[in-house]
């Protein structure tokens, strides 16, 4: 169960992307998402995918991971695809059945959206696969820091994100243990009746909730006993400094994005 979640998983490695500053990585990913929505040529998409596939290779992440992610999101992709296909625009009708009609524009939009979603997932995967979740959380927290001037609780939010990310694997492990414990007390997991199913879920949720609250309580005490205070400015053990390498990475990314547009401008499809 725990192993089936591939998005947000970190791959140990030592590639230039692994070592890059998480802030820059987030910024580049952010721009990438925007760029994706402005390019509308198949050639650009193919080139984009080629570059990302090479990056996967360099980072030694199996490309299979990217496809696994697509699989887990297949439902959303297919659903949006259908909506686009049937309600996605006016113009020349190429297929008609009762109230459903498919236009040429709609087909093109559907194909583009599918490519965009695909590249989006594959590209974002690159960020999470090469960045430790906690580093990611810290970088996101840092991104909020300028908002402190407007009394935005940037520090607290950063801590909250870090703690939540830290606890996801723990809670999953605990859920697994609770399921085991209840299973061996004879809970019928494959029970068909709704009453049995509800009983099964309750028997897992209650211990999970109780232990989460207990954990939260203990963590709060542990943090306080080490002088954690809300609203107090904290220093970090590891400070992300921007270096020449990060600048190079950023410039390379910009070149990549520009080339996507250039390829788009010089091709017909």
């Amino acid at each position: 169960m725990v192993k089936s979640i591939t998005l947000g998983r970190y791959f140990v490695g030592n590639s230039f992307l692994h070592r890059a500053n998480p802030k820059i990585k987030i910024l580049v990913t952010f721009i990438y998402v925007f760029v994706l929505f402005f390019i509308n040529k198949i050639c650009s998409y193919v080139f984009g995918f080629f570059v990302i596939a090479v990056l996967y290779k360099i980072c030694k992440i199996p490309l299979k991971m990217a496809f696994d992610n697509i699989k887990s999101m297949a439902f959303i992709l297919i659903f949006t695809g259908f909506i686009n296909l049937f309600f996605g625009g006016n113009g020349e009708i190429i297929f008609k059945l009762w109230v459903f009609k498919i236009t040429k524009v709609a087909v093109i939009t559907t194909v583009f959206v599918a490519f965009r979603m695909f590249l989006l997932i594959v590209g974002m995967g690159l960020l999470t696969y090469t960045t430790l979740p906690l580093d990611l959380a810290k970088a996101i927290g840092d991104a909020f820091t300028p908002l402190k001037k407007f009394h935005f609780p940037a520090g607290e939010i950063s801590t909250m994100i870090s703690i939540s990310i830290r606890f996801i694997p723990l809670l999953m492990l605990e859920t697994e243990k609770i399921i085991f414990a209840q299973k061996s007390r004879g809970v019928d997991v494959s029970g068909k009746s709704i009453r049995k199913k509800v009983k099964f879920i309750i028997s897992i949720l209650v211990p999970l909730l109780v232990s989460s609250f207990k954990r939260a309580d203990e963590l709060a005490v542990a943090m306080e006993s080490r002088c954690y205070r809300i609203g107090f400015s904290r220093t970090r053990y590891i400070v992300f400094k921007l270096g020449v390498k990060d600048l190079i990475l950023f410039v390379c990314a910009i070149i990549f994005f520009v080339s996507l547009f250039v390829i788009g401008a010089f091709s017909w499809f």
Binding site: E174, K177, I178, F180, A181, Q182, S184, R185, I202, S203, I204, V206, P207, V210, S211, K214
Partner: peptide
């Protein structure tokens, strides 16, 4: 009987 009793009491 699992190690942690709170995993089964609900």
């Amino acid at each position: 009987v699992f190690q942690n009793p709170s995993y089964q009491l609900f």
